[in-house]
Simulated scan of single mutants.
Amino acid sequence: MQQWYQELFNSFVNKYENESFTQGTVGEVDFLESEINHDKSCKILDVGCGTGRHAIELTKRGYQVTGVDLSEKMLKRAREKATESGVGIDFIQADARNLPFQGEFDLVVMLCEGGFPLMETDEMNFQILESASRSLKKGGKLIFTTLNGLFPLFHSVKDFINSNSESQTNRENSFNLMTFRDEYQMEIEDDEGKVLNLNCNERYYVPSEITWLLKSLNFNPVDIYGCKLGEFSRNDPLTTEDYEMLVVAEYLINE
């Protein structure tokens, strides 16, 4: 049985690229470059790469990038876009919880909810972080965005989503203060014009949780910031107004 995110990403490929939250690629890649000091020898892994927007932009700038996603339909579009852009990228279908890499990359990125935190359990989400850590070289960096658990304590997630997406409507949101999970019904029109009704479940994290999880995997330091579309910055402190948080962590040990 497919999970809701599998059904979504297999049916919402072309329209995904027109969403407002996918329009900040250039600015986001500017930040990634600054974090690796524009070192073109760095090998980069893009987890949950989707249609390849970050991987393609990074490759255009001279980096060697591998893209991984669970959705073959997303990857098919990513390969088409890479060909159209004249760049060669290794796109691989794989589960983010079990990446086929061992100490190969200088930078691992998971942006725009690239797998984490969409899993059904906290343990499964943690497996994604474990898998990312195994993929890194000693001293490598993990940069990802995830849902900010401080946001739904002060705001309506349903109202935020409905005001920021032309194609998606959220209904019956139920944010659980014990689990920090938001369960909701999503109504969205797929690439063929068919209306999908999905029962969704996403995990929000507070900064202290992320810090603890990553330090348990030998990441240090762990820095967390606010996350502005297309404007990632270390000068942007996380607040209750940020729907997402930006996490930058350095991996100390590679066994």
Rank of each mutant, 00 (worst) to 15 (best):
S131V: 03
F105V: 06
S167H: 11
C200G: 08
N201Q: 13
N170Y: 14
D106N: 14
L45E: 05
E113F: 11
G48Y: 03
K81T: 00
F154A: 13
F91L: 01
G140M: 04
S20W: 13
R171G: 01
D90T: 11
H54F: 07
L150N: 10
D236E: 12
G62K: 04
Y243I: 08
V195L: 15
F144Q: 03
E187Q: 13
M1C: 10
D122G: 01
M178G: 07
K15T: 06
N254K: 11
L238S: 00
Y63D: 06
Q2A: 14
E187D: 14
Y5L: 09
L229K: 06
D191Q: 06
G139T: 05
K40N: 08
L246V: 02
S34D: 13
R61N: 07
S20Q: 14
E19L: 12
E183A: 08
Y251R: 13
L252D: 04
S41T: 14
R134L: 10
G50C: 07
F12I: 06
D90S: 13
R234H: 08
D159S: 12
K76F: 13
E120W: 01
E80C: 09
I161C: 05
T145H: 04
N37T: 10
E123W: 03
I36Q: 06
K215R: 14
S167R: 12
L252M: 10
N164L: 04
C227P: 02
E130D: 05
I253Y: 11
N162A: 08
Q168D: 12
Q2K: 14
E80A: 15
S174R: 10
K15F: 08
E250V: 13
C42L: 00
N199G: 05
K228W: 01
Q3C: 10
P100L: 08
Q93W: 04
I44C: 07
N164G: 06
N201S: 15
K15L: 13
I36M: 04
N201G: 09
F175V: 04
E172F: 10
I143H: 01
F31Q: 01
C49A: 10
S135Y: 02
N18V: 12
Y184S: 12
I161P: 01
V248Q: 03
I89A: 02
K137D: 06
T25G: 03
D95V: 04
T146N: 01
S216H: 07
F151C: 05
S233Y: 02
Y243D: 00
L8I: 09
Y225P: 00
G193N: 02
A94C: 09
F126T: 09
E123N: 06
G86D: 08
L229Q: 08
E172M: 04
R171E: 12
Y5W: 15
D46Y: 01
L70S: 13
E19T: 15
S41D: 12
Y205K: 00
M178W: 06
N10H: 10
G88F: 07
E255W: 06
S133Q: 11
F126G: 01
